[in-house]
Design a protein around this nucleic acid. Sequence first.
RNA 1: GGUACCUUGGCCGAGUGGUUAGGCACCGGUCUGCAAAACCGUCUACAGCAGUUCGAAUCUGCUAGGAACCU
Length: 293
Amino acid sequence: MPELIVITGPTASGKSQLAVDIASRIGCDIISADSRQIYRGLPIGTAAPSPEQLAKVRHHFVSCLNLEEYYSAARFEDEVMKLLPNLWHTNEREVMCGGSMMYVQAVTKGLDQLPTISESVRKKVIDLYDQIGLDGLMAQLRILDSEYADKVDPHNTKRVMHALEICFESGGTYSELRTGTTRRRDFTIRQYAIDLPRDVLFDRINARVDAMIEAGLEDEAQRVYHLKHLNSLNTVGYKELFAYFDGTMDRNTAIERIKKNTRVYAKKQLTWLKRDPDVRFLPPEDILAEILA
RNA sequence: GGUACCUUGGCCGAGUGGUUAGGCACCGGUCUGCAAAACCGUCUACAGCAGUUCGAAUCUGCUAGGAACCU
């Protein structure tokens, strides 16, 4: 049975390099599971694989979308599931590497089939929110899908809005579409997370941000500044610099904020990973050794 | 030497007699279509000492540290 090796871990833990080491040894490609590296024009701030790494191993889903293009974990799942059989033609094992946990999970566990939200429904929900606010949205959701209304975090506007979108789009409830089941895949999945002591990880993060600044992150951010409202740029490393460009934050504060927010991001990734019993935390050398064994 | 002033939890920062201000970080958590997003929980401090008071971060005195002006 073909196998998918998943290399994940918090940001700045060294996933990219480890994946390249593994892929080059076993002769396979790398599927990147990163919701920001997938966009073009952000190589520095997203710590995308270097030109050398890209030259050494073929990467998928890196630098292939314009910033204004919509993307999602569901699309990622679809595209990866289409791609994998082709890759397995030549290699029995493939590597997926990335820190966008939702993307990783979409591939490893599958997402439920939900309707694609039309432009009109999307607008309708936004207008509704403007008119009746979050409380009104919650009241509406309680009528249309009381089961999910009890479950959802009532303060989380995005989730409430999304549930309503699905109700409107499908004419049914969000609850009935949520099966909560893991999709059976016809391939083996091995998941590893890079395990580093937290203080080491935080040091790496701080040093990497300094290196990004050295490497020209400010210029990179400047080039996309005019697109700052896009979701693809609601990203650590850019939003802070945009505030600096706007004059609402001084440069040093912006850099410190990038470090801080990157640490916060890493923590959230760890929280996600820790609760998944299928993910094994190991030091990078052990991961490599085990795969090559 | 004189006058007036400041000192709040890891950081920022409200609060002039009587609920836990708040924000950020740390730590912990949620997560099924924008996820590097969005959201939640925890952390009870008032420089020290002695007073006044039923009750003090808030008033008084002294001590320590900081900072201003005058000679």
